[in-house]
């Protein structure tokens, strides 16, 4: 009997105490967004526009990669996780065991564009050639019809959803070659490819510019149209994850992104609107 009392008091004290500490009191008007660097430009611009309409809202937007954003959602340190890939079963299990119920909202579609240095004469490649380059089977451009110079492979790091999707769709689960340069953001990949003759990398559609050359894959150019139609082989949806169905400020923000003005931001940033 004594033990039961001790247990009961312990649990009661825990419950009462738990909801009194500052952690439990979320500050009104605050929203934290973290995750995919592909989704980052959409989230940043959407946040700026949203704040103009809701001056009391305080929104923090961070990158870090899809894996980092999802981990933060599971740990309760972010309200919204941006992801350029769906959550894995293991992540779902960890989330659910911690009382988090991940709820996905697709806010845009994207294509992963394979980009090369602007001086590279190649503008068309096959998926097999790209696979051979990124897996390490081919190490000179002349092996795929280009100049006789070494290929510099630029990849995203392991926290990246773009990396996960690229690995799945291009490398069919295989590894990226060991000497590949693993970078932390789309912007870093685009900038490095821009400055490195012989480089090849991959970025979201929103990061294509005239400073790098996006190659067609199996005859399909990476554009919003070919990604929306599914013709482009490296197309994918972009997600926003919340704990349960969005509510409060998170809901207002997601609704804003899905409304015509939010979808215009998606379009302006080079991605494919979903509405």
């Amino acid at each position: 009997m004594k033990r039961i009392w001790i247990l009961a008091v312990m649990l009661l004290a825990t419950s009462v105490f738990a909801f009194q500490w500052p952690w439990a009191k979320k500050r009104e008007g605050q929203l934290t967004i973290q995750g995919s660097t592909t989704v980052l430009p959409i989230a940043q611009m959407a946040a700026e526009e949203f704040i103009k309409k809701h001056p009391n809202a305080n929104i923090t937007v961070r990158g870090g990669g899809s894996g980092t954003g999802i981990a933060a959602l599971i740990d309760g340190t972010t309200d919204i996780a941006n992801a350029s890939r769906p959550m894995k079963t293991k992540e779902m299990k960890t989330a659910r065991s911690k009382g988090i119920d991940p709820y996905p909202t697709i806010i845009a579609r994207d294509g992963i564009a394979v980009v090369v240095h602007s001086s590279n004469p190649l503008s068309k490649m096959s998926l097999d050639q790209i696979r051979a380059i990124f897996s390490g089977d081919v190490s000179r451009w002349s092996d795929v019809g280009g100049k006789n110079e070494p290929i510099v492979v630029i990849s995203r790091d392991v926290a990246s959803g773009t990396f996960e999707v690229f690995k799945k769709l291009v490398l069919t689960g295989g590894k990226v070659r060991q000497d590949a340069l693993m970078l932390a953001s789309n912007m870093a990949v685009a900038t490095t490819v821009e400055k490195t003759p012989g480089a090849i990398g991959y970025v979201g559609l929103g990061y294509i510019s005239e400073r790098v050359k996006a190659v067609s894959i199996d005859g399909v150019i990476p554009t919003k149209e070919t990604s929306a139609s599914g013709e482009y082989p490296l197309a994918r949806p972009l997600y926003i994850y919340t704990n349960r169905e969005p509510s409060g400020l998170a809901k207002s923000f997601i609704d804003f992104v899905l409304r015509p003005e939010g979808q215009e931001i998606v379009d302006k940033q080079g991605f494919v609107p979903v509405r």
Binding site: R3, L7, M10, T14, W21, G76
Partner: peptide
């Protein structure tokens, strides 16, 4: 065993009471 974990009671501080027999 019963072990309630109370996370971030203060910033970066967790409190963990535990009872086992």
């Amino acid at each position: 065993m019963v072990m309630p974990i109370l996370k971030d009671v203060l910033p970066n501080l967790d409190i963990i009471p535990r009872y086992d027999h």
